[in-house]
Amino acid sequence: MNILLIEDEISLAETTLKYLEKEGYHCEWAKNLEEASEKAWLYSYDCLIVDITLPDGSGLDIIKKLKERKSRSGIIIVSARNAVQDRISGLEIGADDYIIKPFDLSELNARVKAIIRRRNFDAQNEIIFDKIVINPYDHQVAVNGEALTLTKKEFDLLLYFISNPNRLITKESIAEHLWGDEMDMADSYDFIYSHLKNLRKKISAKGGGDYIQTIYGIGYKFVKPS
């Protein structure tokens, strides 16, 4: 899987690249519009992460060019929170998704995975983690072959975990993933706790064991039960 990250801030790019590479992607980095155009022209990427505000122009130009060439690459726009208009125009010209700066790497990872899944939907549809099998399209989950009935939030939560296995996912990141940023953080932690409790209960009821580790009040980790 090839990913092109277009981001002008070196430190930010560094961390993002490191994270995505650990996830097993092959990543390249362009720090401005010129480099990005060149790379996008020369190579074909599965997914592009495009920061809209670049020193030498707008990231929207790249999206336009790719779409003119009928590229099938998935595109995620990175935009400032208040740049609503950029976001709308980006989605209009063919971006698949957007993420608001500052974002969590686990969130970005989940979105990249979702896009790549969508692009390759002709291939393997299911996500398998240990005894859990998820079909992200018809929202089906099975543990040990037995179907699990989950609420929408529980499903989103499980999918988010499985997109970022063996990683510490912070409470903040989960809250933002499930409810967006309008909700007050402090309140949403209570929900996370109750959703997690239900999720654990439902999975272990089907003999799945405890996948969710709590890490010192910071967040949670989804791991294979030992």
């Binding site: 801030e9 430190s11 930010l12 961390t15 993002t16 490191k18 994270y19 700066k101 500052p102 974002f103 969590d104 790497l105 686990s106 990683r167 510490l168 912070t170 990141s173 890490i215 010192y216 009040g217 910071i218 967040g219």
Partner: peptide, 22 residues
């Protein structure tokens, strides 16, 4: 802010002591 947040998030993935993680 984005840098601080992402660097911290990456560090959280490291094998660190409880105090450091906290």
């Amino acid at each position: 802010l984005a840098i601080i947040r992402n660097k911290a998030e990456s560090l959280l993935q490291e094998n660190l002591s409880k105090e450091q993680l906290e």
